[in-house]
Simulated scan of single mutants.
Amino acid sequence: MTGRHVLAVANQKGGVAKTTTVASLGAAMVEQGRRVLLVDLDPQGCLTFSLGQDPDKLPVSVHEVLLGDVEPGAAVVETSEGMSLLPANIDLAGAEAMLLMRAGREYALKRALAKLDGYDVVIIDCPPSLGVLTLNGLTAADDVIVPLQCETLAHRGVGQFLRTVTDVQQITNPDLKLLGALPTLYDSRTTHSRDVLLDVADRYDLPVLSPPIPRTVRFAEASASGSSVIAGRKNKGAVAYQELAAGLLKHWKSGKQLATYTPEI
Rank of each mutant, 00 (worst) to 15 (best):
A140T: 04
W252G: 00
A95S: 11
L244S: 03
P211Q: 00
Q242P: 03
L109D: 00
I171K: 15
T190L: 12
R105F: 10
Q32K: 12
T260R: 05
V6C: 05
T19H: 04
V196A: 07
V239M: 13
A238N: 03
D167I: 14
D167N: 14
L67A: 07
K250A: 15
A141G: 00
V144K: 00
D143M: 05
V76P: 00
E221Q: 15
R189S: 14
P211E: 07
M101N: 15
L148A: 13
Q149G: 13
M83A: 10
L133R: 01
S225E: 12
E31Y: 01
A231Q: 09
S24Y: 08
T190R: 07
E81I: 08
P147G: 09
T191M: 14
A17D: 00
Q149F: 10
H5Q: 10
L258N: 10
T166R: 15
V39R: 02
R233H: 15
A17V: 00
I213Q: 07
P55F: 01
Q169Y: 14
N89F: 04
V200L: 06
D54G: 01
T48G: 09
I230H: 05
V200P: 01
S210H: 09
L38A: 10
K256D: 13
A8C: 04
K234M: 09
R194F: 09
L162K: 11
T262M: 10
R156Y: 15
V217K: 13
V70R: 14
D205S: 13
E78R: 14
A220C: 09
P212C: 02
K256H: 04
P174T: 06
T152F: 14
S228P: 02
V76E: 05
V60F: 08
I213K: 04
L130I: 06
A10H: 02
G157S: 02
V146E: 09
N173I: 12
G232R: 04
Y204G: 03
V60I: 12
A114H: 06
C46M: 12
D117G: 05
T134M: 14
D56L: 14
L47N: 08
M1G: 09
E221L: 08
G180D: 02
A17S: 14
A75N: 00
D91A: 15
T20D: 00
A240F: 13
H192C: 08
S193V: 09
R34Y: 05
K13C: 00
T134E: 11
L51W: 01
S80E: 15
A181V: 03
R34I: 04
L41D: 05
R163V: 11
R35M: 06
